[in-house]
Amino acid sequence: MFINFLLITFLVAMVLRLVLPALLRWALSAFVKRQMRKGGLVFGPNGNPFAAPPPSGGPSHSGANGQVRVDYVPPTAKRQPDTNFRGGEYVEFEEVK
């Protein structure tokens, strides 16, 4: 009975040792490809996701290179001084060497 348990445990461990790395590699690559698709990064014809994408017919830049266009500037909050602060207590400090 004990030998059967050890044999089955050994066989399961060996199968997991052979199958688990391939399964994890496949799952991780599928996850990375899905996240890259969500982020707009698509593999090119040569498989390099970091190659420059081909030019598209999207919106063109109306400004010159190096110019920044700001569409929205949030309003600044007017800061009021804290009138409840009456000052603190001075504590002498000695530097210990």
Rank of each mutant, 00 (worst) to 15 (best):
F2V: 12
N4V: 14
L6F: 05
L7C: 03
L7A: 15
L7V: 12
L7G: 03
I8Y: 05
I8Q: 03
I8T: 06
F10T: 06
L11P: 00
L11R: 01
A13N: 05
M14A: 10
V15T: 07
R17Q: 06
R17S: 13
V19A: 08
V19H: 01
V19S: 01
L20C: 03
P21Q: 03
L23Q: 14
L23E: 11
L23D: 09
R25G: 14
R25Q: 15
R25D: 15
R25H: 15
L28A: 05
L28I: 09
S29W: 03
S29N: 04
S29P: 00
S29D: 04
A30S: 11
A30H: 03
A30D: 05
F31G: 01
R37S: 14
K38E: 09
K38N: 10
G40V: 14
L41E: 06
L41K: 04
F43Y: 14
P45F: 07
P45E: 14
N46S: 12
N46W: 07
N48P: 00
P49Y: 02
P49A: 04
F50Y: 02
A51N: 02
A51S: 07
A52N: 09
P53V: 15
P54D: 10
P54V: 09
S56A: 13
G57R: 13
G57S: 15
P59C: 07
P59W: 11
S60V: 12
S60C: 07
H61Q: 15
H61M: 15
A64N: 12
N65Y: 11
N65R: 10
G66T: 09
Q67F: 12
Q67C: 05
V68A: 11
V70S: 01
V70L: 08
Y72V: 13
P74T: 04
P75V: 03
T76R: 07
T76W: 02
A77I: 14
A77C: 07
K78D: 13
R79E: 11
P81E: 12
P81M: 09
D82R: 13
T83I: 10
T83E: 10
T83M: 09
N84V: 05
F85K: 03
G88F: 07
E89W: 06
E89R: 12
V91F: 03
V91A: 02
E92N: 02
E92I: 00
E92H: 01
F93S: 00
E94H: 00
E94P: 02
E95L: 01
E95H: 00
E95R: 01
V96L: 05
V96W: 01
K97V: 06
K97T: 05
K97N: 04
